[in-house]
Computed example of a mutant assay.
Amino acid sequence: MSDDNPREIGERIAAHRRARRLTQTALAVAAHVSYATVRSVERGARRPSDDVLEAIAGALGVDAAHLRTDYAGTERRVHQALPALSEAIVAYDLPMGPPTRPPRQLADEIATTTGWRLSAQYGRIANTIPNLLADAIRHVHTAPGADHHAAARMLASAARTADALAYKHGAHDLSARLIDLMRWAADRAADRLVQATSSYVRAETFLAVRAHAAGLVSLDRAVDAAPRPTGLREAATLGALHMRAAVMAGRAGNVDAADIHLSHARRLGDQVAREGAYLGTVFGPGSVRVHEVSVAVSLGPGHVDRALRAAHAWKPPIDLPAERSSGFYIELARAQEWAGRRTDAFASLKAARAVAPQHTREHPWAREVAKNLRRFHRSDAESLSHFARWVGAA
């Protein structure tokens, strides 16, 4: 039986509806569909069309891929948004008039898209980010002097969300241009924490081309330039840089550097104590644990025992954002597949999809592990074949 049969789709919709404390009637009103449609969909008597699914997902505040895992509309919307993003940033250094939104609305909408980024709701981001980014650029050029730094911080945040859309979907050239915009905005914000965050995001450009040694140099410089960890935001920002530097060192095969950066990240995670989003970057003890697994996997199959020890008897806490939790399960699946624990690897891939389906579907390691499992693993063959087709590994 497929993971996307009508009954299971209906159960997911009902679960999200109850979590939002909505009745079926209220959901129907919010989604602009009939009560009979909502009732029949939740009972599994009807498979929702793409239009109905998107309407219900919008009313529930989730990406449609969380309700139907084989939903392809998100990819379509993302790829339609990429040219619009290119157009929005082509003249970012030129004043092109005032924004269409007032500053307060602009700030609120940018904050909302940051939440969507952390929960891997790329379809929702794609619907709004091109125009939102264009307005953020216009605001930087037109904000009064007293508001200029705040406007630049808003632009850096919007550019980061746009970059997530581009980077996760393989548009690495556009991602690099968006990161350049983020760094441009960070310099104008005159805020060392925003500048440190832009260095954290810049590491993607090194990861994309596997320039790991150069990426480690860049992150080491960012660590040296970051503010000292005198408060929570400073500690979290510096800790995130150490986490990313540890992964970069792992990819470069530099075990000593990876261990040093992980040690600093653990200490700062203990200082922060609670998981949270700081300037749009999640940091805390749970994030450090995820990166311990990531570093071990980055070091390669020879360190699989280290990865499995780091993940042993641990699950991402509920306050960890969906994208990071999904990433943990994908990294763990890779280690389990290396160790010959193929049943466990498939279970981890399914856990990743349950947490953040779109992130999992776009992750190259999820495709790689699924492809290998399909080649060698024979139990649960129908479910595995369905997953492989879904992730693009068939």
Rank of each mutant, 00 (worst) to 15 (best):
E362L: 11
E42Q: 12
A366E: 01
E275N: 15
R138Y: 02
H139T: 00
S40F: 11
A57E: 12
L238E: 06
H16A: 13
A366K: 04
D135T: 09
E337S: 15
S49Q: 13
P144W: 01
V38E: 02
Y71R: 10
L262I: 12
L262M: 14
A111N: 08
V369T: 13
V255I: 14
A356D: 07
K371P: 00
V288L: 02
A322I: 03
A171T: 02
H359D: 11
R17L: 07
T69D: 09
T128S: 05
G215Y: 05
A296N: 08
M182H: 01
R342T: 14
S326G: 15
P103L: 05
H172T: 15
A14R: 15
Q24C: 01
P316S: 09
A240G: 05
S263L: 03
P364G: 07
D147I: 00
R192T: 15
L132T: 00
A45W: 08
I56M: 14
R374V: 05
A393M: 12
V217I: 08
A339I: 02
R43Y: 04
L132Q: 06
L178M: 09
R267G: 06
G250W: 09
P229I: 08
A222T: 09
H169S: 13
R124D: 12
W116Y: 15
Y329L: 02
D51F: 02
R221K: 12
S2R: 09
K168G: 01
E204M: 12
D220I: 03
A158N: 02
I137L: 07
L299H: 06
Q105C: 03
R244V: 10
T281K: 01
A158R: 01
H261E: 07
S40R: 15
P103F: 02
R306E: 10
A36L: 01
T37A: 11
T25H: 14
R177M: 11
V288G: 00
L232P: 13
R192M: 07
I330M: 05
T343Q: 14
V29E: 15
M1Q: 11
G145E: 09
L178H: 12
D180I: 06
G123K: 08
A211L: 05
I137W: 04
Y167K: 03
T113N: 06
D70V: 07
D305H: 13
P48W: 04
H303Q: 11
S326K: 03
R367I: 05
T205Q: 11
W365R: 12
R43P: 00
R43M: 10
V52W: 09
G239E: 01
I56L: 15
S198N: 05
W314I: 10
D93H: 14
A190N: 09
E275F: 01
V140A: 02
A134Y: 05
N5L: 01
A65I: 13
D224P: 00
H363Q: 11
